[in-house]
Amino acid sequence: MADSAQSELQTPGRGNGLRDVYGSRFLLKLLVRKELKVRYRGSVLGIVWSYVKPGVQFIVFYVALGVFLGLEQSPTNRGGLPNYAIYLFSGIILINFFTEALGNASRSIVGNGGLIKKIYLPRQLFPVASVWVSAVHFFPQLLILAVACLFTGWHPSLIQVLAAVAGFIIVTLLATGLGLLFGAANVYFRDSENFVDMLLMIATWASPVMYSWTMVQHKLGETWYALYQVNPMTIAVETFHYAFWLPTTDGSAGIPPHLLSLWIPVGLLVSAGVLLWGQMTFRRLEGRFAQEL
């Protein structure tokens, strides 16, 4: 009898990981609502700011890279990318989703320290809620991209739409996994926030958001290019280019070889591995969150 009771004991502060998030869906919904209300409390524009930032970012990059550096194809510049505005914006909204999700998730445990010290609830809820809030900002931007694509002759196939869904799943898994990892590490080492900021800066430029994959292949060669292509963000961005940008062109620009057959499965596998790593690290460290906070 005593052995049975002892076997049911669990380490204080530890739960069942992401399974608890699924079982606490109502709490997750409340946290997402709370995050949105707190973020825009006292703001005049409110959620419109989620459109202003990518809009300004798009204009700056388009003028600097598309116009001044000649990445936009024109009658006098045949070496640029056709419909560069669509190419650029389809990458920007995805990379912004990743940077916002990971940045907020990595700070979510420390930011909710007062609540964590008062009551027990599944701690994974906080990083996951941050990713959901970022998704709330992402989908309206995706709608704007789709409308812009329609005006430029967008006629995607079912495979292209499914590729975009796969790209979104890759980014979501990656952001959640890294958010769990750095969210837990940030409780013990506050330098983690600075490391995440550097990581997000690198992620913006290490993916083909503003330039073509052919430039990378030409500069790095096949061996190093294959290593570059393993980056899940690179794969996800290319799926969005394949789904939204390529159907608005004559198709001559092309996509990375084996994107559908090789790189999308690789991206899903790597992102799932990062999620598992983040979850295992989070569960190991969460037992002392209340004490450390």
Rank of each mutant, 00 (worst) to 15 (best):
R78H: 02
G70W: 15
K29D: 02
L28R: 06
W49G: 11
L28W: 05
I47P: 01
P82N: 08
R39D: 03
Y84Q: 01
L71C: 00
N83M: 07
E35D: 15
Y51Q: 02
I92C: 09
Y40G: 06
E35R: 09
F98C: 06
V52H: 12
L28V: 14
F68G: 03
G42S: 04
V60Y: 09
G70A: 14
I92E: 03
L36N: 03
K34N: 09
F98H: 01
N83W: 04
N83Q: 13
K34A: 04
S50N: 09
L36F: 11
P75D: 10
A85R: 03
L81T: 07
L27F: 12
N96Y: 00
G80H: 05
G46R: 14
F26N: 01
F26Y: 14
L94M: 09
V38G: 09
L45A: 07
L69G: 02
L81E: 00
E35C: 02
I95P: 02
S90L: 09
K37Q: 15
F26S: 08
F68H: 07
R25C: 04
S74M: 15
K37G: 10
V21R: 01
R41F: 13
L31P: 02
K37I: 10
R39F: 07
W49K: 08
Q57W: 13
A64S: 14
I47N: 00
L71D: 00
R41P: 01
K29A: 15
V21L: 03
I93G: 00
F26K: 05
F98D: 00
V56W: 13
V38A: 09
V48G: 11
L69T: 06
G42T: 01
L88V: 10
N83H: 15
Y84M: 06
F26A: 05
E72P: 00
W49A: 08
S50T: 13
L94Y: 04
I95T: 11
E72H: 15
I47S: 07
G55T: 09
I93D: 02
Y84D: 01
F68A: 12
A64R: 12
K34F: 06
R33A: 07
A85D: 15
Y22C: 04
V52W: 14
K53E: 12
N83E: 12
G55L: 07
L71N: 10
G91S: 07
Y22Q: 03
V52F: 12
Y62G: 08
A64E: 11
